[in-house]
Write a protein that binds this DNA or RNA. Structure first.
Length: 464
DNA sequence: AGTGCCGGGGG
DNA sequence: CCCCCGGCACT
């Protein structure tokens, strides 16, 4: 099917690889300037297209459809052009995650696919035309490319060189395009997030712009409801700036990303995503629940307030880590995309409220709503927290310290910020899922439980 | 079945 | 109060 779709559409602006006047010896690349149908000329009787190509050397030539197709298809060398132009193979390669299906088609290059190049082209000029006609396809390709960006593929380079060669006026545009483009792709989770974290975290919260790694969402405003497409895309605006240089190099980026595109494509391209995350640090000390925006702050808080140490961080033995938890709030729409339940309301973004509700002593009835142990558990989340928890033992420092019960540190857990169970039973909230004395100490050590647990009351030690 | 804890009891 | 437990809601 791809062939059908690929071809026959406007290819103006597409680059092609054509044999020089002398033949294959010196292949030239050129840009299709016009296409016309020529019935008369067809020796075979059926009509065919004649492409007017502006060659890199400035000359203008006309080629029949077949000629162009062949040129591109035949010489391996030239194929570079092809890939350069359309990036088709890349698309196929990188599909991994989602949307593998449709992309697959892009992969195969048939002779006809010669025209595919134009897809790429839309970076520059020809895009408007093709867009209109074949935007659907274009979009998918773009998407793919975007996704692929990070992957290491040699294609890019080839393309680049080609472009340099044949692009004259277009070159500039290309460069700009590639530089500013695609948001892309999978962000190396950890790295990115950390880096970003620090920055915004310290400065107060900046609700939007942080993209978390691991989660992507596609919530294009206009069409998040595309259940069938698992693919996501992702990209966060914030990435743009650095992404190019480091990740994939200019070449692959490709594509779209220009405003122009967005205008041209009426389809919402999932690219501009905002994955925003916030990181908060919550004190886990019994009945404290203080939430600070910086790790240092929370550590200091714990050190001074709970551990009774006044010295600076130097004298810290790291114990503070056990008493606070890092919470990442993912404001983006993973939730809405995945859970498809409720549209996200911005209001939910602020973590504090959610956290606060339960910290009080747990007796007011709202205590355990967010679970720290079940990832993505609740339904209809509007935002989600990634809780990075270190231990929650705030019990008696001496105890936990020396005994070291579960030493599992750093578990990353996702918790939803919106009141999970609102929908369900009103009377009873779901029970807290965090560690409780019983779990931590076991029935054998019941005497070590907090009194509340002993009384079968809401645990006050491990308040989640 | 195991767990969390509300709502009630007894001292 | 302190301590304990029946029993329900959840997982």
């Amino acid at each position: 099917m791809h062939t059908r779709r690929l071809v026959k559409r406007s290819v103006i602006g597409s680059r092609v690889c054509a044999p020089g006047l002398t033949g294959d010896a010196a292949p030239l690349t050129g840009v299709i300037q016009a296409v016309k149908q020529d019935n008369r000329d067809a020796s075979t009787g059926h009509r065919r297209n004649v492409y007017t190509v502006l060659m890199q050397d400035g000359s203008v030539k006309e080629y029949s459809e077949e000629e162009i197709a062949q040129m591109t298809a035949k010489a391996p060398l030239k194929s570079s052009l092809k890939s350069t132009c359309n990036g088709g193979q890349r698309d196929g390669l990188t599909q991994g995650q989602n949307g593998g299906v449709q992309r697959g088609e892009a992969l195969s290059l048939s002779p006809e696919s010669t025209e595919e190049p134009r897809v790429l082209e839309h970076k520059r000029t020809g895009r408007a035309l093709e867009t209109e006609k074949d935007h659907t396809r274009s979009v998918s390709l773009l998407e793919q490319k975007r996704k692929v960006v990070s992957s290491s593929i040699d294609v890019p380079q080839a393309r680049k060189s080609e472009e340099e060669v044949d692009m004259d006026k277009v070159t500039a545009a290309m460069v700009l395009t590639s530089l500013s483009t695609s948001p892309l792709v999978r962000s190396p989770p950890v790295k990115v997030s950390e880096g970003l974290n620090g920055s915004w975290k310290d400065g107060g919260f900046t609700p939007s712009s942080y993209s978390s790694s691991g989660y992507w969402s596609w919530s294009a405003p206009s069409d998040q409801s595309n259940p069938s497409t698992p693919s996501p895309p992702l990209s966060a605006d914030s990435f743009k700036p650095f992404r190019m240089p480091s990740l994939s190099g200019p070449p692959d980026d490709n594509i779209d990303e220009h405003d122009g595109n967005s205008l041209l494509f009426d389809e919402p391209i999932p690219r501009k995503r905002k994955n925003s995350m916030k990181v908060m640090f919550k004190c886990l000390w019994k009945n404290c629940g203080k939430v600070l925006s910086t790790a240092a702050g929370i550590q200091r808080h714990i050190r001074t307030v709970h551990l009774g140490r006044n010295c600076d961080s130097e004298c810290s033995d790291g114990e503070e880590d056990f008493y606070y938890t890092e919470i990442k709030l993912n404001t983006d729409s993973v939730a809405d995309g995945l859970s498809s339940l409720s549209p996200v309301s911005p209001s939910v973004l602020s973590p504090p409220p959610a956290l606060d509700q339960r910290q009080p002593d747990g007796t007011n009835g709202t205590k355990s709503e967010s679970s720290s142990s079940t990832p993505l558990s609740r339904s209809a989340p509007s935002a989600l927290y990634l809780v990075h928890t270190d231990h929650a033992y705030q019990a008696s420092p001496t105890h936990s310290r020396t005994q070291g019960f579960g030493e599992q540190r750093s578990q990353t857990i996702a918790v939803l910020s919106s009141p999970p169970r609102a929908a369900g039973s009103l009377s009873r909230k779901s029970r807290g899922e965090g560690k409780k004395c019983r779990k931590v100490y076991g029935m054998e050590n019941r005497d070590m439980w907090c009194t509340a647990c002993r009384w079968k009351k809401a645990c006050q030690r491990f308040v989640d």
